[in-house]
Amino acid sequence: MSETKQISENAVEVRNVFKNYGDVEALRDLTLQFPKGQLTSLLGPSGCGKTTLLKIIAGLIPATSGEVLVNGKPVTGPGPDRAFVFQDFALLPWATVLRNVAFGLELRGVPKPQREEIAVKYIKDVGLSGFEQSYPHELSGGMRQRVGLARALSVDAQVLLMDEPFSAVDEQTRRKFQEDLLSLVQNENKTFLFVTHSIEEAVYVSDQIAILLPRPSRVSEIIRPTGFRNKDKDSIRRDAEYLDIVDKIWASLRTYVE
């Protein structure tokens, strides 16, 4: 099955992207493919430019040179084909959960009854039914990120860009999120780009892991776990291949830890 997935086309292609901030070279000649329908992690130590790369793909910041293709079309700015999930959730504190989830659709000009109907469905999908009229400050960190996720899902974009989405939630919630993310990748026919600095998390959720090394950033390695992807969620963490990959990645990253 993974064979057929790999020969399928790429949802996102990054070609020879450079990014400079003044004299500082943040990304150098970065080329990377993100296969359709799969989850690709960008993993690396802090300061390796993984968030920069994600924001370039999102069209939030321009690349200095090189190009990014989403479904074959070059990126010039944010588009309806991509939705972003933010590290700090980026919820509107003055708006209810319902309005927050519907906000992406609101900006696209979807009339209120329709967008709220869609929002209610996704609020239910992420398990927040009953909290439609709550405000973000009344929710826990984990619940807030569910709101952020529901907002991204509700605009029905083909590509979901997730910037360390679970880094601000506690460890137990994080594990639950990771399991839910696996089901999401399986059930939704979407492409996920996932930035993380947790090795275990990357190996646990990814079809493909791109390891980025800093100063200047480049892709040092691409790893495709194959053996345990179709296994039961609970047994992955005890799988020999899983443990091997975690060890291998740690071995290559440890020299970059200050």
Binding site: K55, L60, D88, L92, F103, G104, L107, R108
Partner: peptide, 23 residues
């Protein structure tokens, strides 16, 4: 204004006036 909610508005295709008025 927190940068991330402005970026959120941009990434969900808000226009300049959307972002000023709604965010």
């Amino acid at each position: 204004t927190p940068a991330s909610i402005k970026e959120m508005g941009l990434s969900f295709l808000g226009t300049r006036s959307d972002i000023v008025l709604k965010i």
